[in-house]
Write a protein that binds this DNA or RNA. Sequence first.
DNA 1: CATGAATGAGTGTTCATTCAT
DNA 2: GATGAATGAACACTCATTCAT
Lengths: 211, 211, 211, 211
Amino acid sequence: MEQTPDQAARLARRERRFERRRLEILEAAAQVFADKGYESATTRDIANAVDMGESTLYNYFQNKREILLAIVELKKVEMDEFLSQIDRVENRQELVELIDQAMLIVFSRLAYTRTLFGEAWRDPQVFDIAQARLLRIYDLLKSYLDRHILDGHFRPVHTDLTTRMIIGMFMAILAPSTFGGQPVPTAEQRRQSAEAMADLLLAGITFGINQ
Amino acid sequence: MEQTPDQAARLARRERRFERRRLEILEAAAQVFADKGYESATTRDIANAVDMGESTLYNYFQNKREILLAIVELKKVEMDEFLSQIDRVENRQELVELIDQAMLIVFSRLAYTRTLFGEAWRDPQVFDIAQARLLRIYDLLKSYLDRHILDGHFRPVHTDLTTRMIIGMFMAILAPSTFGGQPVPTAEQRRQSAEAMADLLLAGITFGINQ
Amino acid sequence: MEQTPDQAARLARRERRFERRRLEILEAAAQVFADKGYESATTRDIANAVDMGESTLYNYFQNKREILLAIVELKKVEMDEFLSQIDRVENRQELVELIDQAMLIVFSRLAYTRTLFGEAWRDPQVFDIAQARLLRIYDLLKSYLDRHILDGHFRPVHTDLTTRMIIGMFMAILAPSTFGGQPVPTAEQRRQSAEAMADLLLAGITFGINQ
Amino acid sequence: MEQTPDQAARLARRERRFERRRLEILEAAAQVFADKGYESATTRDIANAVDMGESTLYNYFQNKREILLAIVELKKVEMDEFLSQIDRVENRQELVELIDQAMLIVFSRLAYTRTLFGEAWRDPQVFDIAQARLLRIYDLLKSYLDRHILDGHFRPVHTDLTTRMIIGMFMAILAPSTFGGQPVPTAEQRRQSAEAMADLLLAGITFGINQ
DNA sequence: CATGAATGAGTGTTCATTCAT
DNA sequence: GATGAATGAACACTCATTCAT
C-alpha cells in the first residue's frame, strides 16, 4: 500500500509490456487473417504465428472476434490525417505526390487492408468501420471537389458519384498487390501509377488543363 | 433394346429435371454464400434455402466446394459477350447506354458477383476464374482504348493503368449495392451514374471535348 | 384363374430368374465383402459390382445384413459332404488325396471363406454359422480319430485338442492365399502342401510309421 | 532460462502424464476394437470407454486410424524376445514349458491380439505389422527346426510348411478364447494344451521319440 | 502471465434404406 | 422388376473457449 512510486513504475512497465504484446498479436493475426480469411484462420494459427500457447491469447483478448475488431480499428486515423493534406494540393505535381504517398501508406499495411476489406461485407461491425474510414476519405475528397468547382478550378461534375469513382480508381491501382497477390510496386512504378491517375482524373475534372 | 423413343424421352426429361434442380440449388446457395460468405455458410443453410435435406445436396454435387465452383463458373460468358459490343460505341450517348446495360447485368445477379469476388482472394481456384473474367473485360477495354488512341479519338494515355482504373470506376459505382447492402438503384439513378461515369471518363481521354 | 399350365410355367421361369439374379448378387457381394470387409463395403459397391441400381438390391434382400447372412449360409454343405469321405481314408496316400481335394474346395470359393471368417468374430450370427461349419468338420475328424485310436491305428492322443490342431494346421496352409493376398498355389504346390501336412500329422498320431 | 531443474522436472512429469493417458486410451480402445471391430467401433465408443470427451482423444492421436496403428505396434517386441528362448529348449519338458508360457503371453493381451488379427486383412498397414510379427516368430521356429534337423534330432521335414503348421496348431489352441469368446483357460487347462501340442508336434518331427 | 488439457457445439460428409414412378 | 431421388441418423473430426495449475 505504501511504495507508491515503485509500484507505479512497475505497473506502468507492466502496462507497456502488455500493450506491446497485444500489438505483436495483432500484427501476426492481421497477417494470418489476410492470408486465410477470418473464418478459415484458427486461433491455433494465430498462436503459432505469435509463438505462444493458444490459451494465452485469451489473456489479451476476450475472443477471436475481438482480435479481428482490434485489428480493423488499429491505425484507423493514419490515412485520414494524411489525406487532410489534400487541401494544400494546388497543382498536378502536388496531386501526383499525394497519390504516391497515399499508395505508400496502404502498402505499408497490406495485411490490415486486406483483413478490413476482406471481412467488411461479412461482418456488419467490420463493415461499419470500413465504411466509416471510407466515409472520412469520401468527405475530404468531396469537399475538396465541391470547393474547387465553386472557385472555378474544376468542371461542375456530379461530386458524389465522382468522389466514389476516384476512390474506385485508386483501389483499382492498388488491387493487384492488395488482393491479387502481385508484388508491391517499386517506387518508380508507384510514381507512374500516380501520374496516370492524376492524368485521367485531372483531364476529366478540369477545363482544358492539357490544352 | 427397342423402345428407344420412349426411353430417350424419359431420360431426357430426367436429365432436364436434374439440371433444373441443380440450378435451383446454385441459385439458393449463391444467395447464402453472398450473405454469409463461403466459410460461414453451412451445408444446412444451403439445404434449408432450397428446402431439401442436407444429404440430398450430395446427389447433385460432390461437396460444398463444388457448389461454390459451380456458382462462380455459371454464366461466365454473359458479360463478355455483352461487352464485345463496345466496338460499336462511337459517341458519348452510346457509351452511356453501354455502361447502363452493363450495370443492369451485374445487378441481375448480385449474389453471383458477391460470391465470386467475396471468395476470390481466399480461394486460388475462384481467384483464377475471377481473374479470367476480369481479364477478358480488361482486354476488350484496353484494345478499344488502343485502337482509338491510334485513330486519334483519344489522348495517348497509359492504356494498361487506365483500363484498370476504368474497371475501378465501374465497380465503385456498383459497390454500394453489391457490397454495401444498399438497394439496387432505380433506372433513373442507374442512368445518372452511367452519365457521370461517361462524363468523367471521356473528358479525360478525349481531346478538348468540353471546349 | 384358368390358364394354369401357362401361368405355372411363367411363374416357374420367373422364380428361376429371380433365384439366378439373387445368386449373381451374392457372388458379387461376397467378392466385395472379401475385399473390403462387411462394414467398409457399401451397398453402392455391391450394386456396382452387379451392375444394377442400388435400390434394386432391396428387391432381392431385405437389407445389407441379409446379404451377408445369405452369403455365409451359401454352400454350407459342400465341404461337409466332401469331408464325410474321410471314413474311407485308409492309408497315407488317400489322406494326401483328401487334403489336396479339401484345399481345392476352399480355393474355389475364396471370397466366401474370407467373408465368413472375416465377419465371424464381429457378428454373433455369422459366428454361429462359422462355428457350426467348423463343428461339423470337427465332429467328422474327431470321430475318425476316436475310431482309429480304438482300433489301434493311432496313438491315444487327446482327441479334442488334436482335432483342433489339425484344423489349425490346415488353415495355416491356406492362410497365405486366403488372408495374405498370396496367389492360389499351383496343383504341384498344393500336392506338396498336402504331403507335408499328412507327413506331420501321421508321424505324430501313428506308432512308428516312419521307422 | 535458468530454472532448468524445476522446469525439467515439471516437463518430465507432464510427459509421463501424457504417456500414461495415451496408454489408457490405447488399452480401452483395444478392448473396443476387439469387441466391435475397427470400422464398427466409433470414436464415441472409445471416448466413453476411457471416460473422456470425444474431442479429447484428438489431443493424443491425430485420428481414429492412428489409434489403431498405435495399438498394433504396441508391445511388438515382447513375444519375439520371449520366443528367442526356444534355442535353449532341449527336451519335451522344456518345450511344454515354452508353449505354456507363450500362451500366457497371448492371453495377457487378448484385446491387442484380436485387434491385430481382426484388422490385418482389411488394412494393409496393419497387415504388414501382423506379418512382420509372425515372420519374426516364423524365422525363430524355422531356424530351430533347420538346426535340429542338421544335428539329427529331427526328421528331415519340409521346414517352411511345417513351421507354418506349427503356428497354425498354436493358434488353433488359442482360437476359442481369442476369437470364440470362450473364457481364458485355467493354468491346468493351459498345461494340458501345451502337453497335447508338444505331443503332436514332437512325435512327428523326431525319430521314434515315443518308442 | 502462461499453458496443457479438456470439451460442447458444430461441420461436412457418408450410407443404408424408402418411395414414387 | 428397376431405379433415381430423397433423407435421417450417424460419423470422424475441428475449433473456439474454459479452467486448473
